[in-house]
Nucleic acid binder design. Structure first.
Lengths: 150, 150
DNA sequence: CTTGACCTTGCCATGATGGGAAGCTCTATC
DNA sequence: GATAGAGCTTCCCATCATGGCAAGGTCAAG
């Protein structure tokens, strides 16, 4: 099976299959004399596993761990469960973050006329709100020495 | 005001301020003779606007539009509302996507012993599930000519 | 004058993915 | 057997927003 066929059979693009090989998420495929990658049913199974895990939002790193556990017949299911639970917690954190944004935006939008008049509480709010450093997102503001807003 | 002070006053890192200038989201700051960027209160206001919009999940492109509308006194609030509503819809779409993942994972995890036994429905499911091309995420699988899984 | 915090530019990295070019291979059709 | 064109190969570049590091100039306090 060529890479294109393996791609169609697994739902993972050929580009990504090569990428996964390069980062050693999957072993290097054997090659034909001409240098074409060759895949078997086992490889397609692995690629489907990856495709499914990715659709569940697992990162490539997490997929690597899951694959290793999958291949290890003696693995303990608690390890897998831990990864799944951790991932669920992360997803729920992102959901809460997005819901906070949506809540604020819905509130602002509901107070905006949405007509030809220029008054718009959305812009006013964006402009007026003093930033609260404590609720910064990915922010790591460096501390200054002379510290003081001039 | 130097860039570090403007950063502290606005909550936007110096690095990002330079980046926003480079991509022309904000106008180029005036410079001292030595080449230092100089900021005034108006600039800090703009940066705060950006910081707040970013915390609400707006992309840089959307921020550019919002900034233009903010500066345009004659703008119609309907434009702003449209952007906000579109953004809300996008956030809600992402939330639904994440909730689908969380639901599936919770279901799988609840059926996993989570102990020393190797049996794990999570891995079994990842391995066995045939991919449904219709529910692909960002997938644009290219169509093959001979189309057929060997 | 020295120290060191601050500024400058520039390059590199992230994560997962796509796009495209240049060049080789395979296969179906004439 | 020759030709066309789909498919494969590698390599490089782009995304998006952000951080890190390095080399070098500047400024202010001691």
């Amino acid at each position: 099976m060529n890479i294109g066929e393996a791609s169609a059979a697994s739902g993972v693009s050929a580009k990504m299959i090569r990428y996964y090989e390069q980062i050693e998420l999957i072993p290097s495929a054997t090659r034909t004399e001409a240098g074409y990658r060759v895949y078997g049913d086992r490889d397609v199974e692995t690629l489907r596993f990856i495709r499914r895990a990715r659709d569940l939002g697992f990162s490539v790193e997490e997929m690597g761990t899951l694959l290793a556990l999958w291949r290890d017949k003696e693995r303990e299911s608690s390890e897998v469960k831990q990864i799944a639970l951790g991932h669920i917690a992360e997803i729920e954190r992102r959901i809460r973050e997005l819901e906070g944004m949506a809540r604020t935006l819905r509130h602002l939008a509901s107070h905006c006329h949405g007509d030809h008049r220029p008054d718009c509480p959305i812009l006013d709010d964006l402009a007026a709100n003093t930033p609260d450093p404590a609720q910064a997102r990915t922010h790591k503001m460096p501390q200054r020495r002379k510290s003081g807003v001039q």
